[in-house]
Amino acid sequence: MKKSKALVLILILMLVFLLGPFLVIILSSFGSEALMKFPPKGFSLKWYDKVFNIKMFRTTFWISLKVGLLATGTALLLGIPVAYTVVRFRFPGKSVIELLFSSPAIVPGLVIGFSLLRFFIYVSNIPIIVGLYLGHTAILLPYTVRVVSASLRNFDPAVEDAAISLGSSRLFSFLSVILPNIRGGVVAAFILAFITSFNNIPVSLFLTGPGVATLPIQMLVYMEYYFDPTIAALSSILIVITVFIVQTAEKLLGISQYV
């Protein structure tokens, strides 16, 4: 088969564009100089050591993890029933709800963050961590609804009818027949939502306050003062963890078909 040279070139450019930044970050995290450089000079693991010794990174990592897990869990608990209702039933206003939930990228994060700031922090005096949790739940909901809807749409509605005709209530047939068969979609939604929460800056920026920050915010703050490869080392660790989680889920459940 004749290969088109232009296509191969485009493919290579795409790969450089997509993977290049990761390569630069990972390679420079091993440099020995105190200023981040590419290509790095020398070899050292001291920046990795530093990541684990900065207390603010440790505390904000736990905050990010806690907020991410709680917000993702809540977004799933709310999102699965919404997805089920939208996929299975016809009702007035359905297209509005679908539009609202199917385009998470329509409203800029900064706008959401700012309005949440006005809505939560100024109006009530709820703790910062609760504000973060509620704000993240709000931005994750569209992701869980969208991914779970996709897997529900691929599932034959007759299966549910069969369960009901055999004597199950609608709720029990959902739990015993539908949920086990869309678990791939649910896991995919979980991972996608968690990563979205864990990486989020625009919304968190408005909702963090004295003493409470998420990891990405803390990284941003750190970079305002220092330009050593510590951030590169931390980013490399996060990249490796993310790739590992996604890869495992893909192998076990084939989640890529849902996202």
Binding site: D156, A158, D161, A162, A163, I164, S165, G167, N181
Partner: peptide, 17 residues
């Protein structure tokens, strides 16, 4: 429908996968 004791067979079989 779940209180009717009626059996249903579908074109798509609709087995629990």
């Amino acid at each position: 429908p779940n209180k009717r004791n009626i059996g249903l067979v579908f074109q798509s079989y609709a087995l629990f996968p």
